[in-house]
Design a protein around this nucleic acid. Structure first.
Length: 494
RNA sequence: GGCGCGUUGGAGAAGCGGCUGAACUCACCAGCCUUUCACGCUGGCAUUCAUGGGUUCGAAUCCCAUACGCGUCACCA
């Protein structure tokens, strides 16, 4: 009998939601949805120093933006709350007291200096550094006396010696750890707040979590947690540790994804004009492989197809080129409305259309986006491209040299265009195609000689959007100005 | 250093003992489409899976060793 799937994403609100976190959240979300289960979001805010409300808000907003709505947890509630660790202290304290009473955990009064010294000595002797167990045998009376005297002890868990802990991991198989390598670890800090390894066990158990999908960096924490599950008499959830996300640094070395590899937060990608469905798609492919040749998946399709069986053990490389490609594909396939919805803010921000666009501006925005949509991989490139086409242009020597070989032809075409533009001060955007036809007919020049000369004169480039459509961006006046300048310059060349 | 994990083309990445004489994507090359380029479409692009042994009728796929890379060893999560 399979229990209902209950999965969770439990970030600590110590910064904006980053790519790695979003990917963990996604995998949990997808597995829950695939199996008709429940997706829960909870906050691990026991690090008072670094936790902040802004971070929590950022994480929630990012998750919602990516389409990962949770069924239970923070903000939405549920039967297993509260969903913030700092509001669950009573639950933890009760369990800690039980462990102390049973002799499975104990107060430790060692100072940081003592511990550091001990560690140093152990290392000098070539031993693995771990807590000596010095406070293990303090009497209850002594503990009470010292606490009453104002000392602030931590609580350590007495790790059973000489045992092997097996992590039965859904992606890595059985991974073995010796308890002798662990040492009695702290479960409650001297300020009375439990440490992650303890709180997470309590939460996952009391919330009925069935599967824990998290980053590989937690693999070495898992034996500690398992030993706690055993001591508490709780049943373990299934664990799945997904591989790290690597980024390539300036020297070309691959290391764990961090700020030095560029943007790491979800909001940063949002601001750069990536679509949430593209991010989801990209994230899903970071370590997970769908069966066939298909690479583009909507969230809905991901929900149906996701499974842990095809999650890779080897690290995933954050390949920004791939993200750009995926995003570009989503942009090309998006409806006009959606394109406008996402693209317009970038045009406004860059000042190409006003804050309250007129109908004319809206029409212009739509056609610009339509012209450029096959040339951008994110919406942030939209204003960049427009500025690029309108800005200073440079003519490459090789290109000019090639054109010089057909000097007469080139000049004929350019002059014809110049004259037509001069005669039509208010030429409509959609009549450029007709114009090109006329020029071709009148001059007898067609194909590459026709298009190439005009393209170079107008943009300085040899490739780009359709020539007639380019007028939407450059406009009649600028185009004419450039033609005149180019003709002048070109005539003087020999 | 201990423990843990990984190593497939120019890059990302499938593959889980025979139907892979190694998918797919990017990049690159060629052709088609387009009165041009791009977009799009079609085709080409690893005699080989870090190296060395072994198991097997058969291995990128299983085992061992070596090398290299990465992660983790907190009163952070």
């Amino acid at each position: 009998m399979e229990k209902n799937f209950r999965l969770r994403f439990a970030p600590s609100p110590t910064g904006p939601l980053h790519i790695g976190g979003a990917r963990s959240a996604l995998f949990n979300y997808l597995l829950a949805k695939k199996n008709g289960g429940t997706f829960i979001v909870r906050m691990e805010d026991t690090d008072l120093e670094r936790s902040s409300k802004e971070s929590e808000e950022n994480i929630k907003a990012s998750l919602r933006w990516l389409g990962m709505d949770w069924d239970e947890g923070i903000d939405v509630g549920g039967d297993y709350g509260p969903y913030r660790q700092m509001e669950r202290l009573d639950i933890y304290n009760e369990a800690v007291q039980k462990l102390i009473d049973e002799g499975k955990a104990y107060y430790c009064f060692c100072s940081e200096e003592e511990l550091a010294k001990e560690k140093e000595e152990q290392q000098a002797r070539g031993e693995l550094p771990k807590y000596s167990g010095k406070c293990r045998h303090l009497s209850k009376e002594e503990c009470e006396r010292r606490i009453a005297a104002g000392e602030k002890p931590v609580v350590r868990f007495h790790v059973p010696e000489g045992e092997t802990v097996v992590v039965d991991d859904l992606v890595r198989g059985e991974v073995h750890f010796e308890t002798d390598g662990i040492g009695d670890f702290i479960i409650v800090k001297s300020d009375g707040i439990p440490v992650y390894n303890f709180a997470v066990v309590m939460d996952d158990h009391t919330m009925g979590i069935t599967h824990v999908i998290r980053g590989e960096e937690h693999l070495s924490n898992t034996p500690r947690q398992i030993v706690l599950y055993d001591a508490l008499g709780y049943e373990q959830p299934r664990f799945a540790h997904i591989s790290l996300i690597l980024g390539r640094d300036n020297e070309g070395k691959l290391t764990k994804m961090s700020k030095r590899h560029g943007s790491t937060s979800v909001v940063a990608y949002k601001e750069q004009g990536y679509l949430p469905e593209a991010i989801d798609n990209f994230l899903a492919l970071l370590g997970w492989a769908p069966g066939g040749e298909k690479e583009l998946f909507t969230l809905e399709e991901l929900k149906q197809n996701f499974s842990l069986e095809h999650v890779s053990k080897s690290p995933a490389v954050f390949d920004i080129e791939k993200l750009k490609w995926i995003n570009g594909m989503y942009i090309r396939n998006a409806s006009g409305e959606r394109l406008l919805e996402y693209g317009l803010p970038y045009l406004k921000k860059a000042g190409f259309v006003s804050e309250e666009p007129s109908t004319e501006e809206m029409i212009w925005a739509m056609s610009v986006i339509d012209v450029l949509k096959t040339h951008i991989s994110s919406f942030a490139e939209l204003p960049e491209l427009i500025r690029h086409y309108r800005g200073e242009i440079f003519y490459r020597d090789e290109v000019l040299a090639e054109m010089k070989e057909h000097k007469e032809e080139v000049l004929t075409v350019l002059k014809a265009m110049k004259e037509k533009l001069e005669r039509n001060p208010k030429i409509a955007v959609d009549s450029y195609k007709k114009l090109l036809k006329e020029i071709s007919k009148e001059t007898g020049i067609k194909g590459r000689p026709l298009y190439h000369s005009l393209r170079v004169a107008k943009t300085g480039e040899e490739q780009g959007p359709d020539l007639d459509k380019l007028s939407v961006i450059i406009g009649r006046d600028l185009m004419l100005e450039r033609l005149k300048k180019f003709i002048k310059m070109f005539q003087r060349m020999d």
